[in-house]
């Protein structure tokens, strides 16, 4: 009893985000995810507060843990000063540390986030870059984005002196020394280890699910598949 709770309390966001919840449900009332998904942040906080290992492990393995959009609308409204969003961030960290995230459809998507946003950070120094937002993967971006995407070398230089080249300005190429520092920060502070952890657990799960590996096919499946049943409508 309390094994996972104690682990969670090592995360400063838990200490900041949870003192004592009285289950009023204001967080659920203002939550954009609760209006869309079968989701109730009040219950997450309530489960964590019980310190029940079985119940917390079930949460760490569930889709429920991954519905929150981290808008933090819950934070200013809680009459007790709790932050359910912080509690969820700590739970998500633990779910990935323990490899439980691969046990749910929404949790498995962490690999897609690592392969897109995570790798963009380490390759370009930015979370996103125009070539990451392909019209094929982003039809909702519309024809103007498609025009920009196809004419990037004509469009962007109108607004930046250093599109994909060294210098200051938007969408510049970041110099090698800076990228070296960024990579060393990821190594020293545990970011690289965390990326590797996501890959390792995903590889294990992919094989368990019958894929050869967590390769492109697995990536595309977790990035695009929605089994339904998550939402209210």
């Amino acid at each position: 009893m309390g094994k996972y709770f104690d682990k969670l309390m090592e995360d400063v966001r838990m200490r900041e985000g949870l003192t004592s919840c009285m289950n009023c449900g204001v967080c659920t009332g203002v939550c954009p995810s609760a209006e869309f998904y079968h989701y109730d942040p009040r219950q997450i906080v309530s489960i964590v507060q019980t310190k029940d290992d079985d119940a917390i492990e079930e949460l760490l393995r569930s889709d429920t843990l991954w519905y929150c959009g981290e808008c933090m609308s819950c934070r200013p409204r809680c009459p007790r000063g709790n932050t359910p969003g912080y509690v969820i961030q700590a739970l998500r960290r633990l779910s990935q540390e323990l490899g439980f995230f691969v046990e749910s459809e929404k949790g498995r998507q962490q690999l897609a986030l690592k392969r897109t946003i995570g790798e963009s950070i380490l390759e370009t120094g930015f979370c996103i870059y125009p070539k990451l937002i392909s019209p094929q993967m982003h039809p909702e971006q519309g024809p103007v984005w498609e025009w920009i995407y196809e004419n990037d070398t004509n469009v962007y230089p109108q607004f930046t002196p250093s599109y994909r080249t060294l210098g200051t300005g938007a969408l510049r190429k970041i110099d090698d020394d800076t990228m070296g520092e960024l990579h060393r920060i990821f190594e020293v502070s545990g970011g690289k280890r965390f990326f590797d952890l996501i890959e390792e657990h995903s590889e294990r799960k992919a094989k368990e699910m019958g894929y050869e590996s967590a390769d492109h096919e697995y990536f595309i499946d977790i990035y695009t598949s929605n089994s339904g049943g998550h939402t209210l409508q």
């Binding site: 966001r13 970011g191 965390f194």
Partner: peptide
């Protein structure tokens, strides 16, 4: 790296 942080792939220490 904020988008990575709020996608829960970049740890707080990083």
């Amino acid at each position: 790296t904020g988008i990575g942080y709020h996608s829960d792939i970049v740890p707080m220490e990083t």
